[in-house]
């Protein structure tokens, strides 16, 4: 079976730090799988996610996403890779001075999707996350839960086959956290491969049958 994510003997070291952030990490995630990446703060979860969307390069080893070897990608090909990956962050990373609609539409505009197709797709995804009524509201005027839902909408609007979430509920109250996880699970139900990094054990019970991998001091272990 092909892999949506494949990490082979991946290591990541930062200058000035004695302990490696990641050490001999092997991971095979087939398409359509839901994976929790757990571990305490500083275990290397964010580093691993950043390797997957080519924000960083590994010190050694091979990282493949959707069959592409990221080590062999040219600089100009990285944006094309990122359009196939939806990424959700704990701090939302929305443009605060722009409307919810514009924040979500941005993911389509950079991919060259404009004209009639754009409003329809943005409306569809905003209705799905329950933010259509606030489409014209500035992102900075939304509550934390709403901002995260807008970030989920932006991650999903391009219909990416891979969804990465880094502590997506870290800044949210329990109700908002459940709602965001429901949306992520819904995306998984539509066929997306999902990797959620979290240190919150309460989240693990929300998705039945999800695979759990644990990072401990830069090394990967199967199971919670």
């Amino acid at each position: 079976m092909g892999a949506m994510i494949l990490l082979s003997r991946v290591a990541k070291r930062y200058p000035g730090r004695q302990a490696p952030a990641l050490e001999r990490v092997d991971l095979h995630v087939p398409p359509g799988q839901f994976v929790y990446l757990t571990g305490p703060s500083g275990a290397g979860k964010t580093t691993l996610l950043r390797l997957l969307f080519a924000a960083e390069a590994p010190s050694s080893g091979v990282v493949k996403v959707g069959g592409s070897d990221l080590g062999r990608l040219k600089q100009s090909q990285i944006p094309l890779l990122r359009r196939k990956i939806g990424v959700i962050f704990q701090d939302f990373k929305l443009i605060q001075g722009r409307s919810v609609f514009e924040n979500v539409a941005l993911a389509l505009r950079v991919a060259g999707i404009n004209g009639r197709q754009l409003p329809g797709r943005v409306e569809e995804v905003l209705r799905r996350v329950g933010l259509w009524e606030q489409a014209r509201t500035l992102a900075g005027d939304l509550s934390g839960g709403e901002q995260q839902r807008a970030a989920v909408a932006r991650a999903l609007v391009g219909r990416p086959p891979l969804l990465l979430a880094d502590e997506p509920t870290g800044n949210l109250d329990p109700d908002s956290a459940r709602e965001v996880m429901r949306l992520i699970l819904e995306a998984h139900g539509r066929g997306a491969t999902v990797l959620v990094a979290t240190h919150d054990p309460a989240l693990l019970g929300l998705v039945q049958g999800a695979r759990v991998v644990r990072l401990r001091a830069g090394r990967l272990e199967e199971g919670a």
């Binding site: 100009s76 944006p79 990122r82 359009r83 924040n103 993911a107 950079v110």
Partner: peptide, 9 residues
């Protein structure tokens, strides 16, 4: 954000 959503240089 632009970088994150795949904007080219």
């Amino acid at each position: 954000v632009l970088d994150l959503v795949g904007a080219t240089g």
